[in-house]
Amino acid sequence: MATVELEQVFKQYGSTPVVKGLSLKVEAGEFLSLLGPSGCGKTTTLRMVAGLERIDRGVLRIDGRVVDGPQVNMPPERRGLGMVFQSYAVWPHRTVAQNVAYPLTLQGLGAQEIAARVQEALGWVRLQPFADRPPSQLSGGQLQRVAIARALVARPKVLLLDEPLSNLDAALREELRGEIASLRATLGTTMIFVTHDQHEALALSDRVAVMNHGVIEQIASPEQLYREPATPFVASFVGGANVLTGTVDGSTFTTHGERFELPGEGPATTIAVRPEHVRLGEGTPLRLLARLFLGSAVEYRFALGDVVLRAVGPAVEAARVGDHVRVGFSQVRRYASPAES
């Protein structure tokens, strides 16, 4: 268990800035997710923590000790971390047991201790029967379990996971997600988990850091993140909210040439409305573009000027595509800053 602290970290590739002044503190034993769209710099951030990339500016501390910063650069092999890669990265020329034993071999432990700890680690991921198999005889889910056992066997200070589940099919993903959660409960290792899947992040984490364009937009517990998104981007990325920019006059909000009555008062240039908070049947008439049956509910898409407004409601409305339906908002979040994606 250890803390990880990034302070005003910058990173650019060539002339493209990728991480722009990122600050973050991961507490000891915490499970923190880095969540964000593709290309926002999640992997880069994780690799900087790992030591696989140098930081350009700023300071990185692990367990309170500076490991990367001006005049300091501790190579990855000395940081005492574990990492699980998206592509598994299980060595094809070594058996399962040899893969898992490798970090211990490098520590120069005795053969008996290594064997015992490899057995223990394989037990965590339920792979003991596969110890002597070559990786070519394992499935994707099993390979990723080998990678997890290998990353944890030396009891790292921090476990880094870069989209470990994204190469797996949906059912396996669920299963392995549960296993990561229970491993984390047993071992109590600090974990940093990179993903672009909000469900994964919300389900697993103590806190989620939502990244966009190389900065953290909000860092909060899953519930807080969902209930009180700090920026329009977080509202739309985590809750799937409609983000609308316009002007407020009293309780009337004008956007894309349409006027809506907002619940409550307050200044705003941008509002975020979750699809489930779009009420049908009263308010401003909008043309229905599409009606998508989701099973328990129906998603409606309305034309609002040149953008699309999404609503989710019970599967009873008989509105037909092309009709005008009255639309209002039961709950909105107001933001003073304009939206940017």
């Binding site: 790992a50 030591g51 990855p76 092999e77 990492m83 020329h93 490798y102 490098l106 520590q107």
Partner: peptide
């Protein structure tokens, strides 16, 4: 050879040279 294979060795505690000799060369 997938680059992550050598990086996984680094994260396991291997020096760059050791990762090269232990992973890429055998492959």
């Amino acid at each position: 050879v997938d680059g992550a294979l050598e990086e996984a060795a680094r994260m396991s505690g291997a020096t760059p040279l050791r990762a090269l000799l232990g992973v890429s060369v055998p492959l």
